[in-house]
């Protein structure tokens, strides 16, 4: 898609705009809440809200159908990252029961310009991602949980996001309806 009237690279501008806006948001949340845990929780909640909307976009763009097993799901989550964040994490460290895996990132667009000061070591900077995964999976009847096992911002060599399958959600009928 070419857009007239700009000498800037639209894709870079928008990607950086996203990264920097996210940074500004985290800074604001750090001011709003005294407790770092509350910041992590709020980021997760915002991610959840994004996830439940983002899944529609994902389905519309990829036209993908049902997942046959959790491995299939892992690949779709990986595809989601490629589509929306432009990074392809590696899927590794499957648990024996095949209900838990890791996504390893060599780079993360969210943390591109970030250094964590010493007093922020409990902050899960990219925690919005765990919320996005939870929200998106919930909308396709799957309850999962995820957390950061390693984080480059805290000195680890890679960023590792662990995803665990909890259960399949059955269609719930709203109370009071047959």
């Amino acid at each position: 898609m070419s857009r007239q009237g700009t000498r800037l690279d639209t894709k870079t501008v928008n990607s950086e705009l996203f990264t920097l806006t996210y940074g500004a948001l985290v800074t604001q949340l750090m001011k709003d809440y005294t407790n770092v845990e509350d910041v992590n929780k709020q980021l997760e909640r915002m991610g959840y809200n994004i996830g439940i909307r983002l899944i529609e976009d994902f389905l519309a763009r990829t036209g993908s159908g049902r997942c046959y097993d959790f491995k299939d799901t892992a690949e779709k989550i990986q595809m989601g990252f490629r589509l929306f964040l432009g990074v392809t994490p590696t899927i590794t460290n499957w648990s024996a029961a095949n209900d838990e895996f890791s996504l390893q990132f060599e780079s993360n667009p969210l943390t591109e310009f970030v250094e964590l000061p010493d007093h922020c070591l409990n902050l899960k900077y990219a925690n919005v991602l765990t919320g996005v995964i939870r929200g998106a999976c919930e909308m396709v009847q799957m309850e999962v949980t995820s957390w950061f096992a390693q984080d480059q911002l805290k000195g680890d060599s890679v960023t590792e996001l662990r995803v665990k399958f909890i259960k399949r959600l059955e269609d719930a009928i709203p109370a009071g309806e047959d």
């Binding site: 928008n14 806006t21 915002m46 929306f84």
Partner: peptide
């Protein structure tokens, strides 16, 4: 690179 739609959701 992050997609535009991410920014829209984040903004909201």
């Amino acid at each position: 690179m992050a997609d535009e739609v991410m920014f829209e959701f984040l903004h909201a």
